[in-house]
Design a protein around this nucleic acid. Structure first.
Length: 636
RNA sequence: GCGCCCGUAGCUCAGCUGGAUAGAGCGUCUGGCUACGAACCAGAAGGUCGGGUGUUCGAACCACUCCGGGCGCACCA
């Protein structure tokens, strides 16, 4: 999707620079500060100035005269202290830009595995989980749009402490049988029920510390995989996974496979990894100190510090394995390095026909294959970077240095709650919490904004707007439009912050549909499409731009360039750039829309250009919105 | 104590591997609907880019240092 025309001009200059001045110099093109400077600018002279010990302006002049005429380029001039500003020939540019759309990306070798969502299946998803899933999903869309094969995994930690705690609450507090819990999964808003129950259990542990013995008993049963408690664990986890998938589906997020921790254990994934780790002496049995009796990885393996004080326990003294241990086995499997595989069965089929599989212990009839990736991205919040370092160190210690390099922690900062939103929701903050700039979401305290509540609220707000503007439209259709706006607003909101910014979630801000928001971008796309639709309704036709010689007044080529600013040229990980580019493109279009009535333009050449710009903008925005997972409603 | 992240307009944030007068949105004030539907547009006010030192032709961006804040550093995940 990289701008073909821009690249063509850039290449012409690069070949001159590389052959005559410096074969190493990066020749980058950027958008000039001011559109009147031209369509693109090359700051290459600045890079060369240092190396050649010459004045950048002088170098730039040399490059311009040396490179000479380039096809499709109207002019190149040296401005300021060394910028080369380039203007395009409008006709040539228009043709090239439209052609760029007809070229699908070249497929790339290998398979990228992206793990995201990964929510403990013991309570409803909250706003923090949404950031993870939306970030992961958009990243996947970007990767796919650039020709990569991507597999989406959502790891299910169904044997951990969090699931155990809900089971403890059902069994010991509520005195419920597995069968009764199963009925609850069908007759209640189960994830919400567990949300409250989990918070209740957490405070119960605090008041009655001896009750943690229940947790140990439950964990033991779950790990062993039999008994009433284990059965209940599966019922709870499976039902909650179902809730999470439904929540994510509302935002257009789907998965390919759900590897479960229970299979990591029961299919001996861990046992196999454990043998390898022992064999390669990546871990050792500690014989003294606080970790006596545990298998640990020395701190020197994953941190810069020399002392072994910070060893990480992989196997506890009671013989059970920690989460990190299981995660090392899982990471090995992702690269196909474990020599073992899961069995799979179809978990469900999405309404678009896409099938999602879940790991099982017994061979199924479906011939499916997962894992064996060439690169792995784990979308996990930055608080777990320490754990991710340990996992990668595990691979390295086993000699898989290449795979360790290709294991990327796609990290992001947490979502907290603004004080204003806490107050609105009736959340009481302690004196200590009040001093902090924001309140941290806590599942244990039941403190947070539930994902479905937020989505409902957004739809409700959008619905009011839609109803007031389009009272005549069918109710069902209005509802769909409201949903598109609501999810667009939410996804955009979660993506507009850079990954390492803590989001102090503010409800009023998230509910805003004006300014730098998803609906602003959607609205621009709707406006563009309305022009094209009206043209058709009035019996008009799209002129063949390539055959119309456009030289009249009206918007400049640089304005069209602004409209076409390509959002996929940045690094794939930088989703913020994609989002803000969408916003900038939309702003450019809204200015254009306001300044140039398209359909009423009487000058044929000028009208052709305006229509071309409208169409180009529309395509461009649809493409980039798709990458963000935001749909364009039929009207707004 | 050690590690990672952050500090840019009243508020919330962008600022791509250092580059042309530091940008948005919200909020405030002023103005614009004849349907290509104003979820929009135009304009105004608002900044010693936390402080300091250094590197450089050039620093919000790089290095060092100090100050302020957040998050990690479990036989939880």
């Amino acid at each position: 999707m990289f701008h073909v025309f821009e690249k063509h001009v850039q290449r012409a200059f690069a070949s001159f620079v590389h052959s005559q001045l410096d074969p190493e110099a990066p020749v980058l093109a950027e958008q000039p500060k001011d559109p009147s400077f031209g369509e693109i600018a090359l700051p290459v002279a600045f890079q060369l100035a240092r190396k050649l010990k010459r004045n950048p302006r002088e170098i730039a002049a040399g490059i311009v005269s040396g490179a000479g005429a380039v096809e499709g380029m109207r002019s190149a001039e040296v401005i300021g202290n060394g910028y080369i500003n380039i203007r395009f020939d409008r006709g040539a540019y228009g043709r090239a830009a439209l052609e760029a759309f007809s070229q699908p990306p070249a497929p790339r070798a290998g398979k990228i595995i992206v793990e995201h969502t990964n929510i403990n299946p013991n309570k409803a998803a909250h706003i923090g989980h949404l950031r993870n899933a939306v970030l992961g999903d958009s990243f996947i869309r970007i990767l796919r749009a650039s020709g990569n094969t991507v597999e989406v995994q959502n790891y299910i930690d169904n044997t951990g402490v969090q699931v155990a705690d809900v089971v403890v609450a059902f069994h010991f507090l509520e005195k419920k049988t597995a069968r009764e819990v199963e009925v609850l999964t069908r007759t209640t808003r189960f994830d919400y029920l567990c949300w409250d129950l989990y918070a209740r259990m957490s405070s119960y542990y605090k008041e009655q510390p001896e009750s943690t013995a229940w947790r140990a008993e439950t964990l033991h049963s779950i790990e062993a995989g039999h008994g009433e408690l284990s059965e209940m664990g599966h019922i709870v986890a499976d039902a909650i996974v179902e809730c999470h998938l439904a929540t994510m589906r509302r935002l257009g997020i789907t998965y390919d496979v759900l590897p479960r921790e229970s299979e990591i254990l029961h299919l001996q994934f861990w046992a196999t990894a454990f043998e390898q780790l022992k064999e390669r002496k990546a871990i050792y049995l500690e014989t003294e100190g606080k970790n006596k009796g545990c298998w640990v990885m020395p701190g020197s393996a994953f941190s810069q510090k020399e002392d072994d004080e910070d060893s990480k326990v992989i196997v506890r003294s009671n013989g059970t394995v920690t989460y990190v241990g299981k995660d090392i086995a899982y990471q090995l499997w992702k690269f196909g390095l474990l020599g073992k595989d899961f069995h799979y069965r179809e978990w469900k089929r999405y309404d678009d026909g896409h099938r999602i599989f879940i790991s099982t212990t017994t061979p199924g009839t479906d011939a499916t294959s997962f894992g064996k990736g060439t690169q792995v991205f784990n979308v996990i919040d930055s608080r777990q970077s320490y754990l991710q370092d340990v996992v990668v160190a595990g691979l390295r210690q086993l000699g898989y240095t290449d795979e360790a390099e290709k294991s990327v922690h796609f990290s992001y900062e947490m979502v907290a709650l603004s004080h204003r939103t806490c107050a609105e929701m009736g959340i009481e903050l302690s004196e200590e919490d009040k001093k902090k700039p924001y309140a941290e979401v806590s599942g244990r305290k039941g403190l947070g904004v539930k994902a479905d509540d937020l989505i409902d609220k957004l739809i409700e707000t959008a619905q009011r707007e839609v109803d007031s503007r389009h009272a005549e439209a069918p109710a069902e259709e209005r509802r769909k439009v409201a949903e598109a706006i609501a999810t667009g607003a939410l996804r955009y909101f979660l993506l507009k912050f850079s990954r390492n910014t803590v989001i102090a979630f503010d409800l009023q801000e998230a509910l805003s549909f004006e300014g730098d928001t998803g609906p602003y971008v959607q609205y621009a796309a709707v406006r563009a499409r309305n022009i094209l639709r009206k043209l058709e309704e009035r019996g008009g036709e799209m002129p063949d731009f390539a055959s119309v010689y456009v030289q009249g007044s009206g918007p400049s080529a640089s304005q069209s360039y602004n409209l076409s600013g390509n959002s996929l040229t940045g690094a794939p990980g930088n989703i913020t750039v994609t989002g803000s580019t969408n916003y900038e493109v939309s702003t450019a279009f809204n200015n254009f829309y306001h300044a140039y009535p398209v359909l009423t333009e009487e000058d044929a050449e000028k009208r052709a250009l305006l229509l071309w710009m409208t169409q180009y903008f529309h395509k461009q925005l649809q493409d980039t919105l798709r990458v963000l997972g935001i749909s364009v409603p039929p009207y707004m």
